[in-house]
Structures are given as structure tokens and as C-alpha cells.
Simulated scan of single mutants.
Amino acid sequence: MDKALDYSGPSKLSKRLLNIMTWLDNNFFTDIYRKLNPQKKSFTWRNKNTSIRIDYIWADPKLEANIRKNHIYQSIDITDSDHNITLTEISLTSIITTNNRRGIRVEKSSTRIIYNYENTTNEQWNGYESHLKELLEKQRAFIYIEAQGHNKDTLNNLWDIIYNCIQQAALKHIPHKKVGGNKTNLNRNYKEVEDSSKERKDLLYIRKIIRRLSKNELKGTELTDVTKGIKTFNQKYGINILEITEDTDWHTWKCETREWVNVIRRVIKVKDKTIKEVTIKKRIEERNDMITRDQRKMINSILEKTYSKINLDRIRIITDIQDKILLNSKEEVQTEAINAFST
């Protein structure tokens, strides 16, 4: 846990990690959210004084290249849990073999890392060397075979350790950049369509009122502010949420408010459906436009055609005296290939 990014609240939070988190970190398991959002603050649980990212999804290092996205969703319109929902998407197309050509095309847009070795300074190389040695010693890589025995599993595990140590040290010290992974925003052309973000915030506000009411925290000016907020709600949605007083029973108020909360949820559902319909309509218009502008692109898209290329680097010929000769010179291969296809 990075206290600066994953925690907000009193400074009494223990700096000591749980044993399971220490074990995951030492074995190079990946905290997926932090991997994809290295500097983003986001929390999965809150109370009056504290916000913390307490819900994690960890991935084996071998799956790191297959991670596509991770997001934290508000759970107010899905469940009554006081924790937010953490969702991760991991591509399995390189693990589970299928005949889905479209899956192959999607994989071509995955990200990869390119290291800039030419512009790496001596200081960065020294930092990389020191860090790599530290990681290898921490994993006891230099005495791993002696400790674990000479067998196939030991060698495989040792290679995984070395690979992960090299990658971790390189990412920290060697200049690099990510390429590929072009993102498609389905709503990029639909700014005129209002999304449901405001209504979702309103649901969070109602839930916050219920939580504070259950703890008897609404008094004085705070109670007055909540009363004004409820009046605004009623005017905005044309509903009739009951006002709160110091004698209001939170459970009764929650049950009576549920019907009006469902009204807001229906508004969210309608807006989400509208955005989806507009998106589909726009895609259809783009496809129809391809008929006149770019027929090749349209046909390739419909057929889910994969783009392949053959590299011909050697060719076998039969001479006039029936001798078989293998040519591997680029010029000779090119000449013979042209002759073969032109006759």
C-alpha cells in the first residue's frame, strides 16, 4: 500500500503491511490497479474520517502482459455494500486457443514496452545493476538451485525469478515507453448526449445521508443542510422524499425513500440506454458510409480478416540436371521467386 495514494485520513495508520501483502509483493505479484494507475488516487471504502483503497486484485507476473484495464466503480446503484467494486479485465486469448479471428486482431492492439537503451546514462545503468543485484539477493536467486535441488521445476522457478527481477529493475531505472494499445472511446462523438454521472452522484448523496442518519450524526447546521438538499432533490426529480428531523428513525426513512431512489435509478437506466442507442446508430452510419468511401475496409471488417505476411527467405530450385539446390541469398531468392510466379 502506498500511503500517499491509497489512504487519506488520520496519520495513525500502521506502516506495516499485512503478511499476505508482503508475500505477494516479494513474489512479484502485480497490484493491477496501481500498475495501470501509478499516480491516481482512488479509494474503495470510506467512513467519516478515513478513505482507503482496501480492496485489491493481484495478478501473477505471467499474466501481467494480458491485463487490459482496471476500474473502481461506485456500488450505490448495484449493491448496498459500503465497499466500491473493483473490476479487472484480463485477456485470455493467448492462453485459451480459439478460432476467433477477431480476438487475434484485438491482441494486435495490446501495449508493449520499448526500452531506450541508447539514451540510458551511466548513472541509470549503475542504478539498474545495484537494484537488480538487490532483488536477486532478496529472492535468494544465487543459491536457489542449491537450496531447492536440481530439477525441472527449480530451473523454471529460478528463471521466473530472474525474469521478474530484470523487468522490475529495468522499469525503475531504464528509460522506456509504452506503445500500442489504442483505446477506443465509444462516446467520443456524442458530447451532446448527457450521461448519468450527475444522477449517480445524487444516489451517493442519498446513501451518505442514510449512513450518517443511522449513526445519529445529523444535527444542527448539518441537519439543516441535508433538509435543503432533500428539497432540491424533490424539485429536481418531481419526487417526495420526506424531510429529516432529529427524531427521524433512519430505518423507516430508508424504507420510505427506497421508492423514490428507484425513480432516480430509472432515470439513470434511460440515459444509459439513450447513449447506447446513439452509439449504435453512429456506428451504423459509419459502416454505411464505408460503402461509398472505403469498400475494402468495410469488407475486411465484416469478414474479420486477419492481416498476414509471408517472409520468403529461402527457396529450393531444381537445375536442368535434376540437382536440388537451396538458395538463401536475398537477391537469389527474390530473382527465383519472380521467375517462378511470372512463368
Rank of each mutant, 00 (worst) to 15 (best):
M1N: 11
K12H: 13
L13I: 15
W23C: 05
F29R: 04
I32S: 00
N37E: 07
K40A: 05
K41E: 15
K41W: 12
W45K: 05
R46Q: 07
N49G: 11
Y73R: 09
S75W: 14
S75Q: 10
T79L: 13
D80R: 15
S91C: 07
S91N: 07
I95F: 14
T98L: 08
N100C: 10
E107F: 07
S110D: 05
N116K: 12
Y117F: 15
N126V: 02
E134F: 02
L135K: 06
L135W: 04
E137L: 15
R140Y: 13
H150A: 01
K152D: 03
K152Q: 04
T154A: 00
T154N: 01
L155P: 01
N156R: 06
N157I: 01
L158H: 03
Q167K: 08
A170R: 09
P175N: 04
G181L: 07
N182R: 12
S196V: 02
L203W: 09
L204G: 09
Y205M: 10
L213Y: 11
S214I: 08
L218K: 02
K219P: 02
T221P: 06
D225Q: 12
T227A: 06
I241Y: 03
L242D: 14
L242W: 06
T245L: 05
T252Q: 13
C255W: 12
R258W: 08
I264Q: 00
K269T: 12
K271C: 10
D272R: 14
K273N: 10
V278K: 01
K281P: 00
R287S: 08
M290T: 04
R296D: 11
R296G: 04
M298C: 07
E304H: 08
E304T: 12
K305G: 01
I315R: 10
R316T: 09
I317P: 01
Q322Y: 13
L326Q: 14
